[in-house]
Design a protein around this nucleic acid. Structure first.
Lengths: 305, 305
DNA sequence: GATTTGAATTAATTATTTTCATGATTGGAC
DNA sequence: GTCCAATCATGAAAATAATTAATTCAAATC
C-alpha cells in the first residue's frame, strides 16, 4: 500500500538521478531503497523508472506518481506548519547572521519561500563579518547563524544543512586547466582571487593552503561574477562552490577542477540558541532551507547530524 | 513521521465517531489504533481529538489534519487510477445485476462517482429478479452481480462489500412498538409489508420466519416510501435496512426495533467472473462502492473476506 | 580484460506495528 | 450510590515490515 515514504523516495530519485544518491538523500542505504522500489513496482505491477540511463528516466506511471508526490508533500508541509502554529502561535523573531558571500545564492530563495509561510515572523539579515558569529547568538544580536564548522559551544546547538564541493576554476587556456586534480603546491605562483574576508574563513586556506604552507598573492572582489570575470581574463585562479559556478561552466567562460584527492568538501551548519531550537518557526526555517537548497542547487550532499 | 495510514485512520475516526469502530473500519484492533493515535499525538505534541464525547470531537489540530486527509486521499486514488489505466487501458464493460430494491440507494451515488472517473467504461444496470443472478455472470449477460450470500461457484469470485442491520419498523402506536426486541413469533398475526420479490430473497424470511415456521400474510410495494406509508398507517410491519429508514425515523413517522437477539444482520457481496476480478476498472468499482457507502450510509459495518 | 560504479539479491538484523491480555474510566440503568 | 456495559489505554509479547550487510550481477570505463 502506498505511503508518503514512497513519495519522498520518488522525489529524491528525481532530484538526484540515481538510486544510490537518492538513498543517501533520504538517509537509507542503497539496498533499502532498492527493496522499497521493488516493492512499489510490484504493487503497481509495472516499472516506475529505467535504471539503465544516467540520470534515470521515469516511466509514464512513474511520472504520474511523481506528480502526485509534488501535489501531496507540499500540502503535508502546509498542514504540519498549521498544526505547529496551533500549538505555538505564528509569530517570532528570526535574525539570520550570514558571513559567506555565496550563501545568499541559496538563502534568498529559501527566505522568499519561508516569508510566504510565516508572514508573522520578523525575518532579518544580520550581515557582515565577525570573528565569532556564534557570539552574536549569545549576545542576542542574531537568532540563527550560518557557519561552516560545528564548534561545540554551551547554549548553542548546530543543525547540519548540507555539504558541497569547492572546485578550482581557471581560464580554459591557462596551464592549470590541464591538471585534473590540483594540489596545494599548484597554487604557489598563482594569484588567488577571493571574496574580501579574513583568510581563516576560507575553506581553501584552512584545509589546503595553510597546512601546506603555501601563501599565494591575492586579489579580491565582492561579487561572484566579477571573480569569474577576473579568472576568465587570466588574472588568477579561484575556489568556489560547484553550484555557484556551474552556470559559467556551461557557458564555457572558465573550467572547474578538483582540489586535492577526493575534492575539497565544504559544509554548512545553522547554529541557534538551545532554547530556540525546538520552536516550530525555527524548525521550519531549517527544513525550508534544506528543501529549497536540495531542490535548486546541483551537487549537494547530505550532512549527518 | 506522518504517513498516509494515519490519514486513513483519521477519516475512519470521523466517519465512525469512535476509536473502536474506526479500528474495525481499517481492519485493525482497537488497541492498535489507540497506539497509533497516541504516537501521532506525541509526534504533534498535542491532542487531535477528545475521546470523552460520543461521537468524538476533533481539536483544531485534528480538524486540520482531517482536512489534509481529505485533500490527499482523493488525489492518491486519482493517481492510482491513472497508474492502473496506464497498464490496462481505460475501457471496459460493466453490466451490474441488482436484485434488491434498496440497493439503488447506495448504488446510485457510487455509480455516479464511478462514471466520472471511468468515462470510457460502459456502465449498465441489468435489473430484474432472477432465480440465480450469478448465472447471469456465467452466461455473459452481466459482469457484476450484487448478492447477499457468498455461495461458492466455479469461475466466480465474491468480494465482500459491507454488512448492515435490518430493523423491524412499525407505527408508533402499534402494540409491537412496546417490544425492544422482536422474535419470529411476534410476526405471526401481523401483515408483513415487503418488496414484490420471491420469499427466499428476503433475509427476514430466510433467517427468521422460515426457521421458526411463521408465515404471516403479505402486502407488497415497489417503493420504500410507500412501504413506510403503509406501516405508518398501521397496515402492517416491515423489515428494512437501518440506513434506508433512518430519515423516516428522525421524522417520527415510524419506530424501529431490533429483530432477534443481537439483531438481524444482512450482508452484501459483489460477485464477478474470476477472470475479471483483477481488472483495474472492476477493482475500482468495488473500492468506489465501499468508499461511497461507508461515507454516506449510517450504521454500516465492515465485512471480512 | 581488469577495474570501477551502480543496482539487485539473499539472508540476517533491527525496528515498527499489531495483538493479547488486562486495567482504567465513563456513562447510563436501576 | 453501585453495578454493568462500553470504550479507551497500557505494557509485554508476537508478528510483520523495513533496513542493513554482504555479496553478486551488469554495464561502463579505462
Amino acid at each position: 500500500m502506498l505511503e508518503l515514504r514512497h513519495l519522498r523516495t520518488l522525489i529524491a530519485l528525481q532530484e538526484t538521478g540515481s538510486v544510490s544518491l537518492a538513498a543517501e538523500r533520504v538517509f537509507l542505504t542503497q539496498s533499502a531503497l532498492s527493496h522499497q522500489l521493488k516493492q512499489l513496482e510490484a504493487y503497481y505491477q509495472q516499472p516506475l523508472f529505467e535504471r539503465k540511463t544516467q540520470p534515470l528516466r521515469f516511466t509514464l506511471a512513474g511520472e504520474r506518481l511523481l506528480t502526485l508526490a509534488h501535489e501531496l508533500l507540499g500540502r503535508v508541509a502546509a498542514a504540519e506548519r498549521d498544526v505547529a502554529r496551533i500549538r505555538e502561535g505564528d509569530a517570532g523573531e528570526l535574525r539570520v547572521a550570514v558571513e559567506c558571500h555565496t550563501c545568499f545564492d541559496w538563502l534568498m530563495p529559501a527566505m522568499d519561500s519561508y516569508r510566504q509561510h510565516w508572514p508573522a515572523v520578523e525575518l532579518d539579515i544580520v550581515s557582515g563579518f565577525h570573528a565569532d558569529p556564534v557570539s552574536l547568538l549569545l549576545t542576542q544580536r542574531a537568532d540563527l547563524a550560518i557557519v561552516s564548522e560545528m564548534e561545540a559551544q554551551a547554549g548553542v546547538v548546530h543543525h547540519p544543512l548540507f555539504a558541497y564541493e569547492m572546485v578550482g576554476i581557471v581560464a580554459r587556456d591557462h596551464p592549470l586547466a590541464e591538471k585534473k586534480i590540483w594540489q596545494a603546491a599548484d597554487f604557489a605562483g598563482e594569484t588567488l582571487i577571493q571574496y574580501p574576508v579574513p583568510d581563516d574563513m576560507l575553506d581553501l586556506w584552512r584545509k589546503v593552503l595553510l597546512p601546506a604552507g603555501v601563501n599565494p598573492p591575492r586579489r579580491s572582489s565582492e561579487l561572484t561574477v566579477a571573480i569569474i570575470q577576473l579568472v576568465a581574463s587570466r588574472r588568477g585562479v579561484a575556489a568556489l562552490p560547484y553550484w555557484a559556478v556551474r552556470p559559467y561552466l556551461e557557458k564555457g567562460y572558465v573550467v572547474a577542477r578538483t582540489i586535492g584527492d577526493g575534492g575539497l568538501r565544504s559544509e554548512l551548519y545553522a547554529a541557534v540558541r538551545s532554547e530556540d531550537a525546538p520552536l516550530a518557526f525555527m524548525q521550519d526555517f531549517l527544513a525550508t532551507v534544506r528543501e529549497r537548497s536540495f531542490a535548486t542547487l546541483p551537487g549537494l550532499t547530505v550532512l549527518a547530524g
